[in-house]
């Protein structure tokens, strides 16, 4: 169970795509951010390794996943959201409301400007 050369035990999460060198491979930057956030929260002790493994495994083994596994990080993010809700850190409705707020903010932001939550016209 020792994985000294790995930066975090999270790197041995079930199904995590890896390069030939054994490093995680991220399809898009948000996936890397989600991974990093999870590593950080685990290091801070917000949840244990087995709590994480269980939450992720639930999502990864759900029916109707993409055949090519391209939705792996969608599962990751869903697992992280559920775990935060379970831990009472966040409220599911509040997460969804914020998610939609970020989407409105992105569409309202002109090209070349940083996307900020305050740009959401409904806020």
């Amino acid at each position: 169970m020792s994985a000294c050369e790995l930066p975090s035990p999270l790197a041995s999460s079930v199904g995590l795509p890896k390069s030939p060198e054994g490093d995680p491979v991220f399809p898009e930057p948000w996936a890397a951010e989600a991974f990093a956030m999870t590593v950080h929260l685990h290091e801070k002790g917000l949840f244990t390794w087995s709590e994480w493994a269980e939450a992720l495994s639930r999502e990864v083994h759900r029916e109707g996943r993409a055949e090519d596994g391209s939705d792996y990080f969608d599962c990751w993010v869903t697992a992280l959201s559920s775990l935060l809700v379970e831990k009472g850190v966040a409220d599911a409705d509040a997460i969804l409301a914020l998610q939609q707020s970020w989407q409105r903010a992105a569409e309202a932001t002109p090209h070349g400007k940083a996307i900020e939550l305050a740009n959401d016209p409904l806020r």
Binding site: M37, V77, L84, I95, Q99, Q103, A108, P110, I115
Partner: peptide, 18 residues
């Protein structure tokens, strides 16, 4: 030009809450 996919926005939302 600027559009967040559901997952991209969800990650931003979690980041905001945390």
């Amino acid at each position: 030009d600027n559009r967040y996919s559901d997952m991209q926005a969800r990650v931003r939302a979690l980041e905001t809450v945390l």
